[in-house]
């Protein structure tokens, strides 16, 4: 049903809808525009009163600065490695578990599903303390590996749930046909199910990547040295510095948010499908 039909007919109501949409778009986009504009300013222009909305002397110094004067290269490398490993690992285990939940009706299935769902609800701060102690003990504090293990706690439940949603949509007649033809369960999973749900796997990997990329809490608690920190932590640390160089911080934020934005724009249809297949079922 068209919501717009609830409004009185005519040019007026159409105008209301458009004005509303434009205001929402401005609300969504304006902060990004401001970030972009600031990132192109010189430091002195950023502290002009009143602020200039469009930079007068355009400069890309900030974009060079974050790589040269700050260790953005290292942060980026760390974030990429950590997020990608987390996403791949959790999607693999999630797909396995998702297949199990989707196809087998065993005793305790409902309980385990409840368990997976409940683990999605745990707050990170419940786990950071023990993680800090345990990882310090086994020498994984301030390492990328430690963070990957920690991020699995956030990503695995979601991945399982999303993958189950995708696998549910694959008719089980396929499994049966393959079994009649003598294919083993593992064969079915790897040779038939995974290729079919490949788009779903991409969506799940993307979602896991975004979760890990955007995290601050774990990175803050489990890493400390400059060569190990992630993009988000690098940005957060800059805010704590005595003198904040806003153009550079904005450039850093933009670059730090970019992978998420680009991946999202290209894969948004998949992500929407994934979220509605797993987190939400139709």
């Amino acid at each position: 049903m068209e919501f717009t039909s609830l409004l009185p007919r005519g040019v007026f109501s159409k105008a209301i809808v458009w004005v509303f949409l434009i205001v929402v778009c401005l609300y969504c986009l304006f902060p990004f525009a401001w970030m972009f504009s600031t990132s192109l300013k010189t430091e002195s222009e950023a502290f002009k009163i009143p602020p200039t909305w469009i930079p007068i002397d355009l400069t890309v110094d900030s974009y060079i600065g974050i790589w040269v004067r700050k260790n953005f290269g290292t942060y980026f490398f760390n974030s990429t490695v950590i997020s990608l490993s987390t996403a791949l690992l959790s999607t693999f285990f999630g797909a396995l578990a998702g297949y199990g939940f989707s196809r087998f009706f065993f005793n305790g299935r409902r309980f385990l599903i409840g368990f997976f769902l409940a683990t999605q609800m745990l707050p990170g701060v419940l786990l950071v303390g023990p993680y800090f102690r345990i990882l310090s003990k086994v020498g994984l504090y301030d390492t990328r590996t430690g963070l990957v293990i920690a991020f699995l706690t956030i990503c695995l439940p979601f991945s399982t749930w999303m993958m189950k949603g995708f696998i549910d949509k694959v008719p089980d007649e396929l499994d049966q046909a393959a079994m009649v033809d003598g294919c083993s369960r593992m064969g079915i999973f790897f040779k038939i199910i995974l290729p079919i749900v490949a788009p779903g796997m991409v969506a799940t990997i993307l979602f896991g990547f975004l979760l890990a990329w955007g995290d601050l809490l774990w990175a803050l608690c489990l890493t400390s040295s400059e060569p190990m920190i992630t993009v988000t932590l690098g940005i957060a640390r800059t805010v704590g510095e005595f003198r904040i160089i806003w153009p550079m911080l904005m450039a850093g934020s933009l670059v730090g948010g970019m992978p998420a934005i680009i991946l999202y724009i290209f894969l948004q249809r998949l992500l929407v499908q994934g979220l509605t297949a797993g987190a939400v079922k139709e």
């Binding site: 955007g214 988000t232 904005m250 934020s253 933009l254 998420a260």
Partner: peptide, 10 residues
């Protein structure tokens, strides 16, 4: 889509 930190800083 953007990380929490980025949103907060902007």
């Amino acid at each position: 889509v953007v990380p929490d930190v980025v949103a907060g800083i902007i």
